[in-house]
Write a protein that binds this DNA or RNA. Sequence first.
DNA 1: GTCATTTTGTTTACTTGGAAACAATATGCG
DNA 2: CGCATATTGTTTCCAAGTAAACAAAATGAC
Lengths: 161, 161
Amino acid sequence: MTQNAGKDSGAQTGEAMDLGAMTGSLGFLLRLSQLKSFDTFFHEMKGLEIRPGEISVLMLLDRNPGIRQGVLARALMIKRAHMTKMVHAMEGAGLVCRTVPDADRRSVQLWLTDAGRARLETVQGPFLAFENRNTSGLSDADEAMLKTLLRRYLGLDRPNA
Amino acid sequence: MTQNAGKDSGAQTGEAMDLGAMTGSLGFLLRLSQLKSFDTFFHEMKGLEIRPGEISVLMLLDRNPGIRQGVLARALMIKRAHMTKMVHAMEGAGLVCRTVPDADRRSVQLWLTDAGRARLETVQGPFLAFENRNTSGLSDADEAMLKTLLRRYLGLDRPNA
DNA sequence: GTCATTTTGTTTACTTGGAAACAATATGCG
DNA sequence: CGCATATTGTTTCCAAGTAAACAAAATGAC
């Protein structure tokens, strides 16, 4: 529980930082990595006016037409309250449409509109290109291993819970 | 660019989700992993009234007494504007103290108070215990590899930029 | 020295996301 | 059936974080 230089009022003002136990914390490393990844995303996708959340909704709706709003929220690990706002915004932008199934009139099913599919077309190319540049010094093998380990951490390797 | 069941208005309402290309996206995997990690954090540290940001500030200040506010912000990859608020709150709580060095009267140096060190003592044990439980199905070897790869992604393995 | 530029922290307005309370519908149990 | 409970989406309010404009001090050019 003690410090760095030990000097009196010394205190380094330079850039050198001792991260201490933080470099061994998985949560800390994940947070920093995610921030770095998002920084890269915004830098590379600048000009497309797209956000990570919107891209993932477009891609998931393309693959899972008619999915219920709450299921989508769980898949993206965001709260239903927030998903409501995102979906309403995207509906307002004409990208998705919402239908209430007769089988369960509480729920809402989501579908991409033609404009939504067009938007996905526009955005998916740059996004996949970005993904390739997002490795930041990792070798191809490292990157593959990192993704495998993250999927394992998330329980995405054993298909369904 | 096409869908899942292909059926007419079919649309699965169950839980099965096709994540499609998202499972190959490093950014997406990092985001989900970080959310899962934070969920675990809040679950395990419940009752201690502590947040990930506060813990990292406490730990970094313990290791780097007198560090400047902006340097700390860069290390945690948050904006200076937000660090100002965090630090003011922690100063209000008596955990840190701020001094303006004569060498550069624009800047602010940060130090843990005795109360701050005591708070760190209280919180560090449970935090390290949480870290051990945060592996969620990963073997020890997997976890070590994952951390190594994340450090490499962040450029934390080659000591300084 | 003097003045333009940069750096550092702060403030204000805004966005993103969550917590809690709620309405509507579905489900389970007698 | 009739009623308690759970689920789904929504709304309102609040916390976390950013962007942009700013003030004060430092730095560099001359």
